[in-house]
């Protein structure tokens, strides 16, 4: 038995391992919970776009020497602005314009991050490496968990009312647009904080994979959020163990564990009567 405990604790004996564990647990907790609303509001593509589009801001901040958090936020603002402007051209279409704008930003960030004479850590911004998490990253992640957790608690009823019935929510005094913007603000803050330690790849996996795993099985939004957080933390820890024992890249290992959890959860049969298909029909004036 002591051998088992020893082997379980082994990856986390070093400061690097402990910081990686804490970073993954904190980001997984908030990402898994927030992800339910991101998916419910149909913002998975938006989250991917912002996560990829913020890279130039992040890299520029690292090159100039200002905090990465500021760079991440500036990158998100720039990406949102560019996507918004590109999407205005009706000849191109919003989806195509977003794809082109975001791929361009990702390419720009990649060119900057992978240039031969930039600090070595910039490469981690692309692919993520929880083992590189430092104390300021952990402070930012802990602050995010507290503030975003409080915001999610305060927004719980408006989010549920708008997600369930946008038209009905309006007559309850809730603007669907304002509630969606609040959710986007939370998403942007989460991306800006989490991407520093976890990179573009992992940050998206931690937002999207957990709700895919649990939402068909949850009977309430609160349980879906809690379940998402638990699945994200569990998959994150499994990813860390896999990375340690198989000697593979940590960020990629955690992301793969999260995606595996999504596949398992989505494929697992739903208990009781099958959940019905989406009931929202095309909105026709009349």
């Amino acid at each position: 038995m002591p051998e088992l405990v020893d082997s379980l604790l082994e990856p986390f004996r070093s400061g690097i391992g402990q910081r990686a564990l804490l970073e993954v647990v904190l980001v997984a907790a908030i990402g898994g919970a927030l992800g339910f609303w991101v998916l419910t509001f149909g913002l998975a593509y938006g989250a991917e776009s912002l996560a990829h589009g913020l890279l130039p801001g992040l890299v520029a901040a690292a090159l100039v020497g200002v905090p990465l958090l500021l760079g991440g936020l500036a990158g998100i603002a720039a990406a949102a602005l560019l996507v918004g402007l590109a999407g205005r051209d009706e000849r191109v279409g919003t989806d195509a314009a977003t794809a082109v704008a975001v791929t361009g930003l990702l390419g720009l960030g990649g060119v900057l991050a992978l240039a031969p004479d930039v600090p070595p850590r910039l490469g981690e911004l692309l692919f993520g490496d929880p083992l590189a998490a430092r104390a300021p990253d952990l402070v930012a992640a802990a602050g995010l968990v507290v503030l975003a957790g409080l915001a999610l608690a305060a927004l719980h009823r408006p989010l549920a009312a708008v997600a369930f019935d946008r038209d009905g929510a309006r007559s309850l005094g809730l603007g669907a647009g304002r509630v969606t913007i609040a959710l986007l603000g939370l998403l942007a803050a989460t991306l800006a904080v989490a991407v520093q330690g976890l990179g573009n790849l992992l940050v998206l996996a931690v937002l999207v994979a957990p709700p895919v795993a649990v939402r068909r099985h949850a009977s309430t939004p609160a349980r879906a959020m809690l379940g998402g957080a638990v699945v994200a933390i569990a998959a994150g820890v499994v990813g860390l163990y896999a990375s340690h024992h198989l000697e593979i890249a940590t960020g990629a290992s955690v992301a793969l564990a999260l995606c595996l959890a999504a596949a398992l959860g989505a494929g697992f049969p739903v208990r009781g009567p099958r959940a019905p298909a989406r009931g929202r029909l095309r909105r026709a004036p009349g």
Partner: peptide, 16 residues
């Protein structure tokens, strides 16, 4: 109070 046509609600949303 506005009672929309029921088809406009999300039937897959987990609420009682």
């Amino acid at each position: 109070a506005y009672l929309a046509q029921t088809e406009r609600t999300r039937l897959d949303f987990p609420v009682s």
